[in-house]
């Protein structure tokens, strides 16, 4: 098999490639932050009676909260801030499809490239 000779890349091309990668990194990492994607559903289940007892804290727990500088009022928003795990099927299915499609593409395209590498490497000898 003929040896593949890659084209020389111009200086401008190299700079452009670096720029593409940097922009892609920033978009991928920064956009989800900006759009507020992150975070599961956590919300406060408010209680009327704000005592250690009502918050489900026994005497030992209450003494530790107090040692940490909390009162039942200030600890309320921490203790009652709960996750509400709901399985959102459409999102789960989309996620599964995206992940599987990504890995399938990755392995198939890699295999195609890999065969070229192996051919060139071992037929040269």
């Amino acid at each position: 098999m003929a040896r593949y000779t890659p084209p020389e890349q111009s200086k401008a091309g190299q700079v452009l490639d670096i720029a593409v990668v940097v922009v892609a990194i920033f978009v991928a990492l920064w956009l989800p932050l900006k759009l507020g994607f992150a975070g599961a559903a956590k919300s406060i289940d408010a209680l009327d009676a704000k005592t250690w007892d009502a918050l489900g804290q026994n005497a030992t727990m209450a003494s530790i909260w107090e040692k940490l500088g909390y009162t039942p009022e200030t600890a309320h928003d921490i203790i009652q801030n709960r996750f509400h795990y709901i399985i959102d099927w459409p999102t789960l299915i989309i996620m599964a499809i995206v992940l599987i499609a990504y890995f399938v593409f990755l392995f198939r395209a890699s295999d195609k490239e890999y065969r070229e590498v192996i051919n060139e490497k071992f037929d040269d000898k």
């Binding site: 593409v20 990668v21 892609a24 978009v27 991928a28 956009l31 989800p32 994607f37 992150a38 975070g39 599961a40 795990y85 399985i87 959102d88 999102t91 789960l92 989309i94 996620m95 995206v98 992940l99 499609a101 990504y102 593409f105 990755l106 395209a109 490239e113």
Partner: peptide
């Protein structure tokens, strides 16, 4: 991760997908 950061995982995977196309 889906339970906490599902959309973020999708966004990240889409990014890797696109940059893979660029590379390939």
């Amino acid at each position: 991760i889906f339970l906490g950061f599902g959309s973020q995982l999708i966004a990240m995977t889409v990014f890797y997908f696109l940059i893979s196309l660029w590379f390939h």
